[in-house]
Design a protein around this nucleic acid. Structure first.
Length: 294
DNA sequence: AACCTTCCCTGATGGC
DNA sequence: TGCCATCAGGGAAGGT
């Protein structure tokens, strides 16, 4: 489930390896991931050089010679660099007990929807089992890019992430705070895992209605969001099942999670068993003692 | 406009 | 190579 920290980890990995590289050829199998225009990608990517790697919310923006290549990983998207000198494993394998994928590098398989061969022999692979990811090309124009992402909310690590702006976007909203966090038009980049973690840090019940929250609670949430995201980045992202960084490695932030995926375990603050409920059709974890409903 | 529900997609899991 | 229901969830689309 790549959220901001996972996408940021991938971005940093690609930024270290790929700038200056040029795409020689592309193989892609048409599918939903490229629904706008698979032809455009397969025709325009060859010959393009990697110039920079940016991120907006959960979107990765690969800056090429003439295009912005925009990639959203959905639920199970993996964007990895395959090195010619490193031996392949035959395919992804799942750990029998944990379900974690433990293969670092693999040849394209039937879930690999895009395969870009670079001039130096390396490859950039996009693999996505559930095909919830999205990719598209935008002409390399900053105004086009800005309007493309105009619907997205505050960038948690950006200069625009300020208390007054955050508070303003909460005013008048009546839905559950967790549902609001999952929408990308208030704060961009927070998904199911980090929403639960941020609400735990801020000691807010996920079902609390936004307009019922005290200002000091909103302020705690405002501060908790970048905090849990920063921790996620520091530990290389959260690997529960499918997430891998650009080198094919798992993250370790799953060991740092306070509530997500830990129903019935004791709350790290007070020892009360963590509860799991459903909010906005998403599994939601919280401490019934520390996070009282408002 | 705000809010809510449904749907897409596949592999893992568990009951029988 | 047993079969089937259920679950996981980001975001688009459609309904109220």
């Amino acid at each position: 489930m790549p959220e901001l920290p996972e996408v940021e980890t991938i971005r940093r990995g690609l930024e270290q390896r790929l700038p200056g590289g040029r795409i020689r050829e592309v193989e892609l199998r048409p599918c939903r991931v490229f629904r706008d225009d698979p032809e455009l990608l397969s025709q325009q990517l060859p010959g393009q050089r990697f110039e920079a790697f940016r991120r907006r919310g959960k979107f990765l923006i690969i800056e090429l010679s003439d295009w912005f290549w925009i990639v959203h990983l959905g639920m199970t998207g993996q964007l990895t660099v395959r090195l010619p000198e490193r031996p392949d494993s035959p395919r992804f394998l799942r750990h029998p007990a944990t379900g974690l994928q433990r293969v670092r590098q693999h040849a394209p398989d039937h879930h690999t929807h895009l395969h870009a061969l670079l001039e130096d022999g390396r490859e950039l692979l996009y693999r996505d089992v559930r095909k919830f990811g999205r990719q598209l090309l935008l002409p390399r124009d900053e105004d086009r890019l800005r309007s493309h992402f105009a619907h997205l909310g505050l960038e948690p690590f950006g200069e625009e992430y300020r208390w007054e702006a955050f508070r303003g976007r909460l005013d008048g909203r009546k839905l559950a705070i967790k549902s609001l966090l999952l929408q990308q038009n208030v704060v961009a980049g927070v998904g199911n895992i980090y929403a639960d973690e941020a609400l735990f840090e801020a000691r807010i019940h996920p079902c609390s209605r936004v307009h019922r929250l005290r200002r000091y609670e909103q302020k705690r949430l405002f501060e908790a969001i970048p905090e849990v995201l920063r921790r996620g980045v520091r530990f290389g992202g959260t690997t529960l099942r499918d997430y891998l960084d650009s080198d094919g490695q798992q993250g370790t932030n799953q060991d740092e999670l306070r509530v997500y995926g830990r129903p019935e375990e004791p709350c790290p603050r007070c020892g009360t068993p963590i509860e799991k409920i459903v909010v906005s059709q998403r599994g939601t974890h919280y401490c019934p003692q520390c996070q009282r409903r408002r």
